[in-house]
Every structure is written in structure tokens, then in C-alpha cells.
Design a protein around this nucleic acid. Structure first.
Lengths: 206, 206
DNA sequence: TCGAGAACTTGTCGAATGACAAGCTACGGC
DNA sequence: GCCGTAGCTTGTCATTCGACAAGTTCTCGA
């Protein structure tokens, strides 16, 4: 039953805790930024010790990289799945569906946006790699077959559209506690998520 | 010429460095978050020593509070000035003007948005105070006499509109280096700022 | 001009940080 | 069964953190 392993392939047990650590790191990095999140806090969130974090990840940088790959990879997978399952003939209706799915995803993963904003004004090698690997394909998709073409937006406006859509869709979930106090609306409620998805879809694809 | 001072009133010289420290703190907090920004780095940005930071601000918390008051206060003042100077009869045209001024402001102060996102998911006493003091009036203004009413948006959608507008207007400037690499467009250029202002205004107030 | 106090510098403290080394445990191949 | 190693624990290191104390310099009113 057990899979044949070549030497060096991680054991399933180790993989699981490794994944837990990445998840904990993602939360911590999104909440406090790279410098603010300590490896000890990440370990505690993951239910282990600090020593184990440095065992699985030789440095904090490596852990950051793993967390970044995880969240951008997950977004890509989730969107690909949903997009494939949407069967609309009308391109605008299809774009609406994609957009609504995107809002639902960022609502469930507010750490994605916080991570983006926290790290987005650095331009080190790792950030550049993330842009080229994960973000470029999304941007090109949106430009050619997504919201931009469906909404009749000029291609030269694609950069503005990309960041306007991303910001409009995500911010409310990234600052949920603030929103609750300011407006009385709780972004964590399903009802709010759908209402915001509606609003954004109407705004961009009337 | 010199103003009469009662004992204990800070000297002008002290005020100036105090302001410089607040500015440096703002940059650092926006860039690395509260925990990630060190008082020593803030001091260096301000051109002084760490001891002087703790002299002017008894704790890092107090410094954070001063930085938050500064940036939200500045936004309020800037918008009030611009709004007062806009003389449009048509409410929609007026809302467009306000919105474009808002985009220009966040372009010049990208740290505002980074600060909001970094601190917006905490709900401590200081954040609550900032919401009640600085953000509530802005939200009410937008709802009653701003973009929401001008765009014919239902008042119950005001929360979604507020965060959609804020996010759409600001994100591109908060992650400028990323945007440059991803799209080729540099958000720091005046031309880009105006193009984004155009795009957002057309999006929300067609 | 001189004294008082604000403004600033310097040095130091315990606590927390990232990284590492030296062990211990448990699982899977033989 | 038993052995090697991946997985995990524990302890320690130099460095950096926020905070504070003590001392020096500058400014301005009298």
C-alpha cells in the first residue's frame, strides 16, 4: 500500500506538518508582515516548536517563499477549476461568473490580499519570481479572455482595470473588523460576500 | 515676534523633529507593519537617534497613534480643501471631481492604503478610535453627498461602494513596483495617475 | 549674559528574535 | 525483531528589540 519512495522523498507525516507550518506562516505574514511575524509565533499557530520550523525551512526567507507559492498557487488552482465549470455562452455572463467566483475566493482567503499589499512594494528576486510565475498568467487571462474584453475595456486600460478590480473585490474582506465597526456590515457573513460580489459584478459588467 | 510660551510648551525646534519622526514612522509602519518597524530604523529615517524617538514618544504605541492621526488627519484636510474648491452645479460632475482628487491624493500618499490594510484587521482601542474619529465622517459624507448618491447607488449598498471605491482607487499605487513589472505601467508617473483617475471615475460614475 | 529647562546623545538593560547544534522518538525497510 | 534515518524536541548562541537612565548641548526669557 505504501508508495515506493526513493531516498530523500519526504515522508507523509513530515509533509503534513510542513503544510501546517506554511498555513500558519501565511496567516502570520499577512497579519504582521515578514519582519513582524516571528518563527516562534508561526510554530505556535501550527502547534509545534520553533526548532521544527527551522528544521523544515532552513531560513525565514525560504518559509516566506513557500507561503507565497502556496497562496498564489491555490488561487490559480481554485480559479481554473471554477472557470472550467462555468458554461455560459455569453462572454459577459461568463466574465460575471468568474468575477463572482473571484470575490468568493478572496472572501475566504483575505490573507491573499494582505500578503499582496504587504509585500507588493518590494522588488527583490523572490517577489519578481512570483510576479512572473503566478501573476502574469492571471493578468494576461483577464486581458484577453476575462473581464477586460467582456466589459469592452480598451486593452491599454488593462493595468488600471486589473488593479481596480482586485482592489474593489478584496479590500472589504482584508479589513473586516474595521468594516464591521465603520458600516455595521460584517464581511465574514455569507450574505455580505454575495452582496459584495453582486455589487462588484454590476459595477464592472453592467 | 516669538510667541509667548508658558513653561512646558514645546519649543518650535522640538516640534519640527517630532514631525519628522512621525513622518518616518508612517513610512516604516506602512512598509513593515507595527511590529516589523523598529524605533531605531524610524530614528535613522528621521536623521536622529533611537533615544530621541523614545524621548518624544513615551512608547511605540504612542508613536503609532501619532502616525495614524497624522495620515488620516492629512487626508481629511486635503479632501476638505479640494472639495470646497470644486464648483460644479451637477452633483455627478462634482462627485467625479472629488473622486479624481481622491485618486491623486492616494497616489501621492500610498502609505495611507498600506497602513489601512496592515492595521485594518485589528480591533484594539486605538483602531476603534481612528474609525470613529476619522473614517466615520468620510463614510457618511460619501453616503449622503458623495459618490453613492451621485451614482444612484442604493444607500444599503454604501458599505460595498465605500470599500470598492477605496480599493479600486488605491491598490495600484500601494504596490507600484509590482505593477511596474507586471504591466509595464509605472504608477508613480503623473500620466499613470491621471489615467487611473479617469478609469475609476468612468467606472463608478459613467 | 546667564540660568533653567527643553532638546538631544550615549550607554545599558532584560526580553525576544533567527539560527543552529545535540540529542531523542518513532516509523518503515530488511 | 532491529536498525537507520526522517521527524521532532530541547537548549543555546549572537543579535536586535523597546525602554529607560544619566549626562551633554542648545535656546530663550529674564
Amino acid at each position: 500500500m505504501t508508495k515506493k519512495r526513493t531516498s530523500g522523498t519526504p515522508l507523509p507525516r513530515g509533509q503534513a506538518t510542513r503544510e501546517r507550518i506554511i498555513g500558519a506562516a501565511l496567516e502570520a505574514f499577512a497579519e504582521k508582515g515578514f519582519e513582524g511575524a516571528s518563527t516562534r509565533e508561526i510554530a505556535e499557530r501550527a502547534g509545534t516548536d520553533q526548532g521544527l520550523v527551522t528544521y523544515h525551512f532552513p531560513s525565514k526567507d525560504e518559509l516566506w517563499r513557500a507561503a507565497a507559492e502556496r497562496i498564489f498557487g491555490d488561487l490559480g488552482k481554485a480559479l481554473d477549476e471554477r472557470v472550467a465549470s462555468l458554461e455560459f455562452d455569453d462572454p459577459k455572463e461568463r466574465a460575471r461568473g468568474v468575477l463572482r467566483e473571484y470575490v468568493r475566493y478572496v472572501a475566504r482567503h483575505p490573507e491573499l490580499f494582505r500578503f499582496m499589499v504587504a509585500e507588493g512594494n518590494r522588488s527583490n528576486a523572490r517577489m519578481r519570481w512570483i510576479i512572473d510565475t503566478y501573476m502574469k498568467p492571471r493578468f494576461e487571462f483577464m486581458k484577453e479572455r476575462g473581464v477586460v474584453s467582456a466589459a469592452g475595456i480598451d486593452e491599454s486600460d488593462a493595468p488600471y482595470a486589473f488593479y481596480a478590480v482586485t482592489g474593489a473585490a478584496s479590500l472589504i474582506f482584508a479589513v473586516a473588523p474595521t468594516c464591521r465597526r465603520l458600516t455595521g456590515v460584517d464581511p465574514r457573513k455569507q450574505q455580505t460576500i454575495e452582496a459584495h460580489a453582486d455589487f462588484v459584478a454590476r459595477l464592472l459588467l453592467p
